[in-house]
Amino acid sequence: MQLTHDTTNFENKQFPVILLLDNITSEANIGSIFRLADAFGVQKLIFHGTVPNLNSNRLKRTARNTHNTVDFEVFEDATQAIGDLKNSGYKMTAMEITSESKPISNFQLEAEKILLVAGNERHGVSEEILKNCDTAYHIEMFGKNSSMNVAQSLGIALYEITKVLCS
């Protein structure tokens, strides 16, 4: 028998993870990220640059009301917020393929608090944000493409990160 929201025995938890969304523009992706944040017990979303259209029907349908329950902030420029979070112990980790990135399947907890960065659908994490990151992880892929949908990549990353946080 399929269980409903009210009949699952999942433990309600929140992890010391904040998502920094660097100019993510797709309303469907933003809605999916709200749902992922709820599902994985993310503390908060920080939108940097592009302001999300929370009145979008596409976003609302995809988010399934989580845009009303997940904490978030919007900054045209999140530089001050990033500095404040890093000063309070957050390790800034990008989901981006770089010359120094490691596979997310090998994620290691290097700090108690994580500021996980995801980038724009077309251009990835901006150089401005990337230079502030302490580390970077990527998803190993086996096809010809070297990119993945931002919401899907965050789902994979949050799964790997929360797996480590729960152990």
Results as ranks from 00 to 15, higher is better:
18 I>G: 02
73 E>F: 01
162 T>V: 14
161 I>Y: 03
37 A>E: 02
13 K>H: 10
38 D>Y: 09
137 Y>H: 12
125 V>P: 04
146 S>P: 07
158 L>F: 05
58 R>S: 09
119 G>H: 03
46 I>K: 03
14 Q>R: 10
55 N>E: 14
153 S>N: 02
163 K>W: 09
3 L>Y: 14
16 P>D: 13
28 A>S: 09
70 V>I: 12
69 T>N: 12
64 R>D: 09
34 F>C: 04
132 N>E: 15
71 D>A: 13
129 I>N: 05
8 T>M: 10
60 K>A: 04
71 D>F: 11
110 E>K: 13
115 L>M: 00
112 E>D: 15
107 F>N: 02
122 R>H: 08
31 G>P: 11
72 F>Q: 05
166 C>P: 01
63 A>Q: 07
74 V>T: 11
157 A>V: 08
3 L>P: 03
92 M>G: 01
63 A>E: 04
150 V>L: 01
141 M>L: 08
30 I>S: 10
94 A>R: 02
36 L>A: 14
38 D>C: 09
109 L>C: 07
66 T>W: 02
82 I>Q: 01
76 E>Y: 11
73 E>G: 00
17 V>Q: 03
81 A>E: 13
15 F>E: 08
45 L>N: 06
131 K>W: 05
72 F>I: 05
59 L>D: 05
9 N>D: 15
65 N>F: 08
159 Y>W: 13
63 A>F: 09
19 L>Y: 00
15 F>L: 10
53 N>C: 08
6 D>M: 13
154 L>Y: 00
27 E>Q: 12
139 I>M: 08
142 F>Q: 12
154 L>M: 08
143 G>F: 01
34 F>R: 00
136 A>Q: 01
24 I>V: 14
12 N>F: 12
29 N>A: 09
153 S>W: 00
66 T>G: 01
20 L>Q: 09
57 N>Q: 13
97 I>D: 05
89 G>L: 10
167 S>A: 11
134 D>M: 09
84 D>E: 12
147 S>N: 12
140 E>P: 15
84 D>M: 14
101 S>F: 09
129 I>H: 07
40 F>K: 00
157 A>W: 00
35 R>H: 07
6 D>N: 15
142 F>N: 10
45 L>V: 04
13 K>E: 07
